[in-house]
Structures are given as structure tokens and as C-alpha cells.
Amino acid sequence: MTATLDQRYGRTRRSRRRDVWIAVIMGVAFVVVFAAWVIWAGLDGAKPTVDAQDTKHSIIDAHTVSVSFEVTMAPGTTASCAVQALNESFSIVGWRVVDIPAASTYTRAFTEVLRTSSQSNTGLVKGCWPT
């Protein structure tokens, strides 16, 4: 009677072996995926970082704005920064990518003058990235 019920509900010796094999395969798959993620995340963190901070802006006239900013990055690293001018609606009215050459200091100050398509009321650094 018990053997008949075990066979009916899939509790045979064969099904237990299959369940063990499925558990082992799932465990190995988890370990492989986790190890791949750890390696990928470890290699991804090796990129140099570049930080930029706005220091001031000056509206020169209706079509020109001066943007001052500081860039912090590892010595010997080159970077590019996107500098933009915004109007009172926060629309971009002037934009330029500035190439930052390598140097021996961590933090350097820059000032860029942007031409704008209309009156701006602010200028800022959108972001920087290593090149």
C-alpha cells in the first residue's frame, strides 16, 4: 500500500535522485553566476573617476556666459566635461564639451565662456568623464 502511494505521488527513489541532481545543478549555476558578477564588478571599479564642481557663473551679455568650475581627477588622467548654459525655463541655450588635459595635480580650476542662443541665467558643468 505504501509503495503504491509513493509511486502515485512521485516519492520514489528515482525521483529523489532527480531532485538531488536538480538541486546540485541549481547550486552550481548560482555559484557560476555569482562568481561572474563578482569578477565583473571588480573589474568595473578599476576605472578612474572624475569629479566636477561648479564654482561660479557670470552673465556677460544676452548671448554669452562665463562658467567657472573645478575638476578633481587622478594625476596623469585626461577627461572631457560638458559645460552648459540654461535659461529661466531650465532649457539648454548653450553647450560645449571641454577637453581637460592631464596634469600632476588632483584639483584644477577652469573657466569657459559659452555663446548662447538666447539670454541665459545660469551656467554649470553637466558632468565629466575620463577619456
Rank of each mutant, 00 (worst) to 15 (best):
residue 56 K to D: 08
residue 24 V to F: 08
residue 89 S to M: 09
residue 131 T to N: 04
residue 56 K to G: 03
residue 112 E to C: 03
residue 36 A to L: 12
residue 52 A to I: 06
residue 33 V to F: 09
residue 112 E to S: 13
residue 127 G to Y: 12
residue 81 C to L: 01
residue 36 A to F: 05
residue 29 A to E: 09
residue 89 S to T: 02
residue 7 Q to V: 12
residue 67 V to F: 06
residue 121 N to W: 02
residue 80 S to W: 05
residue 94 G to V: 00
residue 31 V to C: 10
residue 74 A to F: 09
residue 41 A to T: 11
residue 80 S to L: 04
residue 126 K to M: 05
residue 3 A to C: 15
residue 20 V to F: 11
residue 24 V to G: 08
residue 106 Y to N: 10
residue 45 G to Y: 14
residue 10 G to S: 02
residue 95 W to S: 11
residue 29 A to W: 10
residue 37 W to R: 14
residue 128 C to P: 07
residue 17 R to T: 15
residue 85 A to G: 12
residue 100 I to P: 06
residue 54 D to S: 07
residue 106 Y to P: 12
residue 13 R to D: 15
residue 26 M to V: 11
residue 22 I to M: 14
residue 114 L to K: 00
residue 35 A to T: 05
residue 67 V to C: 03
residue 60 I to G: 10
residue 43 L to T: 14
residue 129 W to Y: 13
residue 124 L to W: 00
residue 63 H to P: 00
residue 72 T to P: 02
residue 59 I to Q: 06
residue 64 T to H: 14
residue 125 V to M: 08
residue 124 L to C: 04
residue 60 I to Y: 01
residue 25 I to S: 13
residue 74 A to M: 11
residue 18 R to E: 15
residue 114 L to P: 01
residue 41 A to M: 04
residue 61 D to F: 10
residue 120 S to M: 05
residue 117 S to W: 06
residue 114 L to H: 02
residue 97 V to H: 03
residue 72 T to A: 07
residue 92 I to D: 00
residue 124 L to M: 08
residue 49 T to N: 10
residue 9 Y to C: 14
residue 118 S to H: 01
residue 8 R to A: 05
residue 60 I to K: 12
residue 72 T to N: 02
residue 31 V to Y: 10
residue 102 A to M: 04
residue 25 I to E: 02
residue 20 V to Y: 06
residue 71 V to D: 03
residue 86 L to Y: 03
residue 102 A to G: 03
residue 54 D to F: 00
residue 9 Y to S: 09
residue 71 V to Q: 02
residue 80 S to T: 06
residue 111 T to L: 07
residue 44 D to E: 05
residue 2 T to Y: 14
residue 47 K to S: 13
residue 73 M to C: 00
residue 110 F to H: 06
residue 14 R to C: 12
residue 15 S to R: 14
residue 128 C to G: 03
residue 41 A to S: 13
residue 104 S to T: 08
residue 12 T to M: 01
residue 120 S to E: 00
residue 8 R to F: 12
residue 15 S to H: 15
residue 108 R to V: 07
residue 65 V to L: 02
residue 4 T to V: 15
residue 7 Q to P: 01
residue 112 E to V: 15
residue 113 V to N: 11
residue 11 R to L: 09
residue 113 V to Q: 15
residue 114 L to C: 07
residue 42 G to D: 11
residue 74 A to W: 04
residue 77 T to P: 14
residue 14 R to K: 15
residue 84 Q to R: 09
residue 76 G to H: 07
residue 66 S to I: 06
residue 12 T to V: 03
residue 129 W to P: 09
residue 110 F to K: 05
residue 93 V to M: 04
residue 51 D to T: 15
residue 87 N to E: 04
residue 5 L to E: 09
residue 76 G to M: 10
residue 106 Y to C: 08
residue 5 L to R: 15
residue 78 T to K: 06
residue 106 Y to E: 07
residue 94 G to T: 00
residue 34 F to G: 05
residue 113 V to Y: 12
residue 89 S to R: 06
residue 98 V to H: 03
residue 32 V to L: 10
residue 51 D to V: 03
residue 91 S to I: 02
residue 120 S to D: 00
residue 113 V to W: 08
residue 127 G to D: 04
residue 4 T to Q: 14
residue 89 S to D: 04
residue 21 W to N: 15
residue 100 I to H: 04
